[in-house]
Nucleic acid binder design. Sequence first.
RNA 1: GGACGCUUAGCUCAGUUGGUAGAGCGUUGCGUUUACAUCGCAAAUGUCGGGGGUUCGAGUCCCUCAGCGUCCACCA
Length: 700
Amino acid sequence: MDSKYQPQLVEEKIYKEWEEKGYFKAEVNKNKEPFSIILPPPNANGSLHLGHAMFTYEDIMIRFNKMMGKETLWLLGLDHAGTETQFVFEKHLKKLGKSRYDYKREDLYKMIWDYVAENKNHIKGQLKRLGFALDWSREKFTMDPEIVKIVYKTFEDLFNQGLVYRANKLINYCTNCGTSFSDLEVAYVEKTDSLFYINYQVKEGGNIEVATTRPETLFGDTAVIVNPKDKRYKDLIGKTAIIPFINREVPIIADRTVDIKFGTGAVKVTPAHDFNDYEVAKKYNLPMVQVIEFDGKLNKLTGKYCGLRIFSARQQIVTDLQAQGLMVKIEEDYLHRVGTCYRCGRVLEPLPKEQWFIKVKPLADQAKELIEKKETVVLPKRFKKRLTTILDDFIDWNISRQVVWGIRIPAYRCKTKNNWFISTDKPDKCQICGKNDFEQDEDTFDTWFSSAQWPFATLMTEGSETFDYFYPTSVMETGHDILRAWVARMMMIGYFSTKKTPFKTIFLHGMIRDPKGQKMSKSKGNVIDPILMIDKYGADALRATLIFGIKEGGDISLSEQKIIGMRNFINKIWNIGRFIEMNNQVKIQNLKVKSESKNSKVLKELEKESKKEKKQYLKYMDSYQFSKALGLIYEFIWHRFADYYIEQLKDEIINGNIEALGKLKEVYLENLKMLHPFIPFVTEEVWGVFEKKSILESSL
RNA sequence: GGACGCUUAGCUCAGUUGGUAGAGCGUUGCGUUUACAUCGCAAAUGUCGGGGGUUCGAGUCCCUCAGCGUCCACCA
């Protein structure tokens, strides 16, 4: 054995052996208790980041439960990540001087498919570098035909049960990227804009002054609202305001939602371009007038401003209002929050569009019941309330996306009757009128709609025997930042489709931050590449760093210093093995079977302490306190086993006391097993020095 | 505005039934003829955010104030 443990020389070899011996391959085995985890599918469009390295928790659970005698399945899959991937790909096209509009739908789809296929291998290689015990024989992709079939069936079932509907609602639309986003995907940012105070004439006499950040939408105004308690406007309620330029007459309505103190206390209502106004319009049955189109330009209802982009139209209109003396004042430093596109950063435009929506309430109620009945346990406990609040507040879910890269919605519109029907297979004739005159919805599903089905859809494609054995899955382990976007939705759709919870336990991990506790981001330049760290210090060191000395579910500050510290620990483990191995081969003629009485006392102490250690370890592991389990062994192996016991027995062992050596070896091997789920490579490598079979064939 | 969390050694953080303050990294001193210098031994630094309460006893429970963070809602 070398005096240093060199991960670079052994990790690849060890992983290959694990794979070749099929240790990660799960089988239905009725004699064993099943334990299953579905890997949160990484996006197939990039590289792994440190967040993915947190799946180490899953590997720990899988390896631990395997060594505890269970039949374990860690199912791997990758996500097509619709909008995200198409965005990445379009950036790639832009470099070539092209855009998505240069290609036919089918060709663009094919190009992205090839791009993703290539990337999948890259990511799979990275997952192996982390040492993950994934079942490679069951790899899934969200766009596999068998998966798509299930996704279609779910959509059809939801539709048939009245839980899917098509509606013309306001959506968040990025006019630059050309797609809509669900409310969860909107990134709000603080922005300074001007607040304009504009005079509207009142038909019956006088005028009413409104405050707005968006004068260009006034062509779409269909009312003015004031607070019923506002004395200033008491006499105007019920009268008629006249919109500048176009002289449209709109009612002045009293509504309590208006804040008397803000602006002038009078609000122009533009239902087609503002979410609040849309709600007001629904309440009072006001018409919707769309004046901005999906290309981000004003339409012909705006007269001479037609064809102008939003911002230049705004400037022009302000100038014209000023010329007409209708602009009362402009407050320039008005700070507010606006919804922006998380991809390109531009301000999102609320626009009316017909889309498919899921009626969430009944589904959310059932998901909540799963938590209340403890069919699903949330860990750490404090996230339980957050999840139930999320389920309480869930609003209807827009699942239509205007991107090519995704699962195309299997909805067809009858062109003669203008109604929709759903068909999981490509229909030969219209299911409404029987003719051949129909067309498929151009849109694709929101990626989360397919990933919401991931736990059951993946297992279903493996056949009913496998499904029945491994479903519901044991644990869903993921970051707490996607509780709403993913976990809640998996519970809703999972229960809908299988009438069971998709996972018995939810275990949430925290976010990784830089050494100063700052969020890691490309723009801050503080991103640490996990693969680079593995190259330098080994996968075990990185894995231990993510688990050691942290609170479950809490954020982690990661520094290279800490990784080095863990690397040192791993080297220590190696060298303890080296010490035992060296003395194992000590000259036979010098054997002393019995210990001196002083040392036999030490041996008894060691026996007792190590038994206590294991008991405590199992307790921690069973209660998902992985950090404590690792901390316990760290403390024992370094400061008790190495610093105390070995030092006490060293002289005698060198003199050939095989009883003491045997005991040390026994305790050491036991600790290797306990450590294996955390740091699989080094434990396997040292284990191999003493034992013939893999450490994965041993049991705890 | 709402929810949750955080505030403990120079730095990053542990501390789950309340009982004499901990780890990693860093700092200082000493140590190296073979397990490990990616090491060992020793040392220093804390009114555990402020204030109040419960208790024989609180970092640990309750109240309050302050600062920070995350998620959510979002005022034209």
